[in-house]
């Protein structure tokens, strides 16, 4: 049961076209893994926190650096040089007393990704490498946990929402690991937009309210101001989610 204080806090998001009261309660009983908490994962984690998700596991290694500041909303100039995860967790806790935040000061390896995916209700994947993204996708499929993959480059971004065993996993979309660059260009406005949309997909999945875009890729090209939605093809031969695995 939501307390009177919680009902007041969430009053603007309970009602027609938003969440039902039961949906808000389901959100409070839910947990999400967010990795990593950068330009997309940061805004996503903040949106999940203010929306009232019960527990957030926040994985991000290393210390904050000055180039983070063009998109990092969980840190500030004052926190440059500090370890990211514990500081970001403190900030999220300060935004909503009803949300538990579990910081992880590193990115999960295969075993840990599997262990965490098994104990959360959704995985929100925002890492800067395909290696990590494909790892989280495998963990999500193996544990039947819904996956939201948010990615960006420059002023464009993509969002892929996976219902494991039913819709295309990341390996179906990227059968060969694509090349990537470590120092990808990024404008904070697009990473925040894609991160917020990823959080919205998680909120719909967890609350049972609204229509998640399972099986689709949403692409927004902010450089040209164009959006596309693509129905993703699940590969029955996929070594991760296919029928023969």
């Amino acid at each position: 049961m939501l307390t009177d204080d919680e009902l007041q806090r969430y009053s603007r998001q309970i009602g027609p076209g938003v969440l039902s009261r039961q949906g808000q309660e389901r959100l409070r009983e839910s947990s999400v893994l967010v990795t990593r908490a950068g330009g997309m994962g940061g805004p996503a984690a903040l949106a999940l926190t203010t929306a009232g998700v019960g527990r957030i596991v926040l994985a991000h290694g290393g210390r904050m650096i000055t180039p983070d500041l063009n998109r990092q909303i969980l840190g500030s100039e004052a926190t440059v040089g500090e370890f990211r995860a514990p500081h970001f967790a403190d900030y999220l806790r300060s935004m909503n007393r009803y949300v538990e935040v579990e910081p992880l000061d590193h990115e999960p390896d295969d075993d840990e990704a599997l262990e965490i995916a098994a104990r959360v209700d959704a995985v929100l994947s925002c890492p800067p490498t395909f290696d990590e993204r494909l790892r989280l996708s495998r963990a999500a499929v193996d544990t039947s946990t819904p996956l939201i993959d948010a990615a960006q480059w420059g002023m464009m971004g993509t969002l892929i929402v996976v219902d494991p065993s039913r819709t295309a996993c990341l390996r179906c979309v990227y059968p060969q690991e694509p090349p990537f660059e470590e120092l990808f260009p990024v404008v904070g406005a697009i990473s925040a937009a894609i991160g917020s949309l990823a959080a919205l997909e998680a909120i719909k999945i967890l609350s049972g309210c609204g229509e998640p875009i399972f099986g689709k890729m949403l692409m927004y090209d902010g450089f040209r101001g164009r959006a596309s939605q693509i129905d993703l093809r699940r590969d029955p031969q996929c070594p991760v989610c296919g029928d023969a695995r």
């Binding site: 997309m40 694509p178 990537f180």
Partner: peptide
């Protein structure tokens, strides 16, 4: 026809 070069920025 849509062609998207994969992106992985986080």
């Amino acid at each position: 026809l849509v062609i998207i070069a994969p992106v992985a920025g986080g």
